[in-house]
């Protein structure tokens, strides 16, 4: 059973939603506290996050470094813009592959949903080309695609 959806919206947005059987406070902490982030934000099996910096205050730094244990790795940097415990996080991020990718502006919301939480992550890319490139390379920890509807295609 899949609880996750991912759709493109307009030319520049990607929206991910997923339900969790946990309160918004847990989701918010798991997205902002380094010791929790590095337990799950890992992408494919076998990857770890040896460096996880998350300064959860406006202007605070984000730096995630991933490694596959066999010499391959990449990292992401970003900054927090707005934090509303335990309902909303706004940050910008970019991948380093090693050239930095254009900024991805991300708003993550945690709304009560029954006994749990509905997470809605809305990414805004600078333009349609950047979004296309992001989907093609699967950057951002291989996150970008589930039900990409391709707006009416098939």
């Amino acid at each position: 059973m899949s609880k996750m959806t991912l759709v493109t919206e307009g030319d520049k947005h990607i929206v991910v939603t997923r339900h969790f059987d946990a309160p918004p406070e847990g989701l918010y902490r798991a997205h902002t506290e380094p010791e929790l982030i590095r337990k799950w934000m890992l992408g494919p099996e076998g990857w770890t996050m040896p460096v996880c910096i998350s300064e959860a205050h406006p202007g605070g730094k984000i730096r995630y470094e991933w490694s596959n244990g066999k010499g391959a790795g990449f990292h992401l940097t970003g900054e927090y813009l707005e934090l509303e415990p335990y309902s909303r996080i706004v940050h910008v991020e970019r991948m380093h592959l090693p050239e930095p990718t254009p900024d991805n502006h991300v708003e993550t919301r945690f709304d009560p949903d029954g006994a749990g939480t509905l997470m809605t992550m809305r990414m805004t890319l600078p333009d349609a080309e950047t979004r296309a490139h992001m989907l093609a390379t699967g950057m951002e920890h291989g996150m970008e695609a589930s039900y990409v509807r391709l707006e009416g295609l098939l």
């Binding site: 991912l6 991910v16 969790f20 946990a22 099996e45 989907l135 920890h141 291989g142 996150m143 589930s146």
Partner: peptide
């Protein structure tokens, strides 16, 4: 897209475990 979707799903399945442990 299915490959990427799987990677993202695995992240969130792991997050379910983290939340349950919390």
């Amino acid at each position: 897209l299915a490959t990427l979707r799987d990677a993202l799903s695995r992240n969130y399945d792991r997050l379910d475990e983290v939340l349950a442990a919390m």
